[in-house]
């Protein structure tokens, strides 16, 4: 039985297979593969964007959805253990898609459940479907995954999306540029990991001038609450806003990605720039999630 809890649960081959499947679903989005299957979509903390994307994926595949979008009115709020909740739901459904604020909750659930578990986010830890949709967007816009240069911008210390993307892209001889304020640099364990693999990376604190050789510009939010020194935040918050002017000298094939929601880190004028890809990126999420669901259920 295959679950997807962490992006490292998928090998390079499994990542490629999922991305191929996603592209198949993009060409033919309505397929009855989940006919007669029940999928539990259990969101212990609300996330409308992710939940609707997953539930759309299940519906396009012809499956049925049970579940909840917030644990406030469930037995969980009456103190039921996660173990009991998961055991019960695993008896009803063929697949569990879950989001939980407790870190490691999805791994634990995958050990209890008799059906596959897809992690739709466990606190600050993992959100592997986001990573796969990011990779799908990279592959679709660049025509390949190998030998690309990815500039990661913003909160590289706490941002789980950049950590997972780094791990997954490390299969493809990627060169990384880490652009972040001093307080929010990429943690040393990820740099050690790249060193071990012999992959190239560089670190910068300025956004402009450091993105000209990138194929992908992966933007993330720089949040005020991450700073111990608010003066430092005030200093950096305007440096990390991407503008059309900064994109002028960049490569013609570059695409700007962002896991969304965006706050102010991308100027709204960039939205109409052909290099902006973040809205299409989120649409790719449905196809990628269709692929993940089909793959973990062993249906393709």
């Amino acid at each position: 039985m295959k679950s997807l809890v962490s992006i490292t649960d998928f090998s390079k081959d499994e990542i490629l297979k999922t991305l191929d499947l996603a592209s198949e679903f993009e060409n033919n989005p309505n397929q009855n593969i989940l006919n007669n299957k029940v999928v539990a979509s259990i969101f212990f903390e609300p996330s409308t964007r992710t939940r609707l994307s997953f539930e759309t994926a299940v519906n396009r595949l012809g499956g049925r959805v049970i579940g909840f979008s917030d644990s406030a009115n469930t037995s969980v709020s009456k103190g039921e253990t996660l173990k009991d909740t998961i055991s019960m739901i695993a008896n009803y459904a063929d697949l569990i898609i879950m989001r939980h604020h407790i870190e490691g909750a999805a791994r634990y659930a995958s050990e209890i459940s008799r059906v596959p578990v897809i992690n739709a986010g466990d606190g600050a830890n993992q959100h592997p479907s986001q990573t796969l949709l990011d990779m799908y967007s990279i592959k679709k816009t660049q025509g390949k995954l190998e030998n690309l240069t990815i500039a990661m911008v913003g909160d590289l210390k706490y941002g789980r999306t950049v950590h997972s993307l780094l791990m997954a892209m490390s299969h493809f001889n990627t060169t990384f540029k880490f652009i972040a304020p001093a307080e929010l640099q990429m943690p040393v364990e990820y740099k050690n990991y790249l060193n071990k693999l012999g992959l190239k990376y560089s670190e910068h604190t300025e956004l402009s001038d450091n993105i000209d050789d990138a194929d992908i510009l992966y933007m993330t939010r720089v949040q005020r609450e991450r700073f111990s020194d608010l003066l430092e935040y005030e200093k950096v918050k305007n440096i990390y806003i991407l503008t059309n002017e900064m994109l002028e000298k960049t490569k013609p094939n570059v695409k700007v990605l962002h896991p969304l929601p965006r706050v102010s880190e991308i100027d709204i004028n960039v939205d109409d720039n052909p290099k902006a890809y973040y809205f299409t990126q989120s649409l790719n999420g449905v196809y990628t999630r269709m692929a993940i669901i089909t793959y973990v259920l062993g249906l393709k």
Binding site: T81, I102, G104
Partner: peptide, 12 residues
């Protein structure tokens, strides 16, 4: 060391 970890919250 993570207080938000499931291993510190559930009995495992």
């Amino acid at each position: 060391i993570n207080p938000k970890c499931v291993s510190n919250i559930e009995n495992i």
